[in-house]
């Protein structure tokens, strides 16, 4: 309850701040439409040649593109700004103030910075996803939608934990921005269902950097291709990553020596 109140309060402050910069909204909308438009054109080109791609029809790939955009929006709007701010604070020592507050430091570090207008991506992604889902025959049932929502939740947890885990290494190595920057490049691979990649890359995108897995599983759920073991696998991965991240965070805090005075 208290956690939700803190999140709401931080969101309010960020919103008040970002409202001052209305022009960012239009820039972001333009950028988001451009990126999604490019994605749609590529899809159109591919399906001009073939009817299906490794078992994925056009509406199904629209769903994948939608999930990719939604999750990407979440990363850019919430996860990355927070992680970047945290790394900067480790480097310049202002993390001291976070640690001196009577609230869980991992929570505080994860909710402070929000790029409000980046959330436009989430909206655009949701629209693309809905358009794709509406063209599916048969349409998704209630169970599929529930499975999709659960899988999307797990995907968010997986991506958040993965990025925070990368950032936590800052406690030992201080300068780790490049790790997190390279995530953006790898995330692009999530644009396509993980099944279309050769097996070595598929394993990489599932186990090493689980973005492919994170995007594909919710899309599978909505398009009726999901097996329950896969969903259970996503849940297990999310749970395990959450625990590992927590443990590493605690170890990191013990190791933190602050930037010198």
């Amino acid at each position: 309850m208290r956690t939700l109140r803190l999140i709401a309060l931080h969101l309010r402050v960020v919103a008040m701040y970002e409202m001052q910069y209305r022009v960012n909204f239009f820039l972001q909308l333009f950028q988001s439409l451009l990126a999604t438009g490019t994605g749609l054109v590529v899809l159109a080109l591919v399906y001009g040649q073939v009817d299906e791609l490794n078992g994925w029809s056009r509406p199904e790939l629209l769903v994948v593109l939608g999930v990719f955009t939604v999750l990407g929006g979440l990363v850019q709007a919430v996860i990355k700004p927070n992680v970047v701010q945290f790394m900067e604070e480790v480097a310049d020592g202002t993390l001291d103030y976070v640690l001196a507050k009577p609230v869980d430091a991992q929570l505080l570090v994860s909710i402070r910075a929000v790029r409000f207008w980046q959330a436009v991506d989430i909206l655009v992604g949701a629209i693309v996803m809905s358009v794709g889902a509406a063209q599916l025959r048969p349409g998704p049932g209630l169970l599929a939608v529930l499975g999709f929502l659960a899988a999307l939740g797990f995907a968010a947890v997986i991506v958040y934990c993965f990025l925070l885990l990368l950032a936590t290494t800052a406690f030992w190595f201080v300068r780790v921005d490049t790790f997190v920057e390279s995530f953006d490049g790898i995330y692009q691979a999530g644009r396509w269902p993980v099944g279309i990649y050769p097996s070595w890359l598929r394993i990489g995108l599932t186990a090493v950097v689980p973005v492919g897995f994170a995007v594909t599983v919710p899309a599978q759920a909505l398009t009726g291709q999901l097996s329950w073991p896969t969903l259970a696998g996503a849940a297990a991965l999310a749970g395990t990553l959450a625990i590992v991240t927590r443990v590493c965070w605690r170890l990191g805090l013990r190791h933190y020596s602050g930037a010198s005075s």
């Binding site: 109140r5 931080h10 402050v13 008040m16 701040y17 202002t94 001291d96 609230v103």
Partner: peptide
């Protein structure tokens, strides 16, 4: 803890808003 060479307040917003955040954090 107050450190003269480091800020805890957020740069971009008025201090009054940071005060309210602290109110919530310290309950």
């Amino acid at each position: 803890l107050v450190m003269g060479n480091r800020n805890q307040l957020q740069w971009d917003i008025p201090a009054a808003d940071s005060f309210e955040l602290n109110r919530a954090i310290y309950q």
